[in-house]
Design a protein around this nucleic acid. Structure first.
Length: 285
DNA sequence: CGATGCCCCTGAGAGC
DNA sequence: TGCTCTCAGGGGCATC
């Protein structure tokens, strides 16, 4: 579900409720999601204060005052909701949990925050803050596309020698952090590059355009609060609205929205996942 | 090493 | 109404 813009929107929504605040109580309602939760997770979180809430790729990182960082990944269907209800103390309060609420964080003097994930592809872990970048799930991830470490030259280096289709290479998190199926399709459309072309066959000019369009589509999507297709909501329950600005994703059979282009959006399968593109203005393989 | 499927899981929607 | 089938914002892992 959530790609970089959705995770960033959730992070921004949670930040005022978490930073500087303490977990008074944490209910861990199953033993794990994609993987088992870390040992004694509830105990290690209870009483901890969140120093800052950061993001790396599609992971949220809650840096705690105990030298540990809580990693949260939303998987495909993960959602985070902040309660309307606020209590001075949550210790005795009985909550009406929703189906698939797996972990619920109760903020001292604040709301509770429920992590809900029907498909359970999400994940949480605790790791020493000092070495969190070396966490096995983070260590091999590529540069943040909205950060200073990303540029046409960096992208060119990551694409060089890759014989797979550029669509597949961009989905590989080692190339660029945080892209998923939607924003890869949209960035390639904006850059007028076919998803089917080999990554290594792009020239420097195309790569420079692609790098810029990756940044622009992510920036636009964050400004719109992300894309809501099925599960995704902002933390206050509001929908994102970038799905209304999709050019090609989910638009099979529609006319290409590019001005002057009369092509039709095609869907095809690459690596087991749907790819949407306009062969008229993006070209073929 | 790189590329390709499989698989984890629930739910929504289409078709019969 | 209810069954069966397909598909879904991810990504690790086995296999070739």
């Amino acid at each position: 579900m959530p790609e970089l813009p959705e995770v960033e929107t959730v992070r921004r929504g949670l930040q005022p409720f978490l930073e500087g605040r303490q977990f008074e109580r944490v209910d861990v309602r199953r033993t794990g999601l994609r993987w088992p939760f870390p040992e004694r997770m509830a105990e290690r979180l209870t009483g901890a204060r969140v120093v800052s809430l950061a993001r790396r790729s599609k992971y949220m990182l809650a840096h705690l005052d105990r030298g540990e960082t809580l990693l949260i990944h939303l998987g495909m269907s993960g959602r985070v909701a902040v309660s309307d209800r606020v209590e001075d103390s949550w210790s005795e309060v009985i909550i009406d949990f929703q189906k698939h609420d797996h972990v619920v964080f109760f903020v001292a003097g604040g709301p509770f925050i429920a992590f809900n994930d029907p498909r359970r592809f999400g994940a949480m872990d605790l790791w020493p803050t000092a070495t969190v970048g070396a966490h096995p799930l983070l260590a091999r991830i590529g540069p943040e596309p909205l950060g200073n470490g990303f540029s046409p030259a960096v992208l060119a280096g990551a694409l060089a020698g890759r014989r797979s289709a550029v669509k597949s290479v961009l989905l590989d998190q080692r190339t660029v952090a945080g892209l998923g199926n939607i924003y890869v399709c949209e960035a390639l459309w904006r850059a007028r590059i076919s998803p089917l072309v080999r990554a290594a066959d792009l020239d420097d000019k195309q790569i420079a355009i692609l790098a810029g369009e990756i940044r622009s589509v992510l920036t636009d999507a964050i400004a719109a609060g992300g894309s809501s297709l099925r599960d995704y909501r902002q933390v206050d329950g509001e929908l994102g609205y970038f799905q209304h600005d999709f050019a090609v994703y989910g638009k099979e059979g529609a006319q290409c929205p590019r001005s002057g282009c009369s092509g039709t959006v095609l869907r095809e399968v690459q690596g087991g996942r749907s790819t949407f593109h306009c062969p008229a203005c993006q070209g073929g393989a």
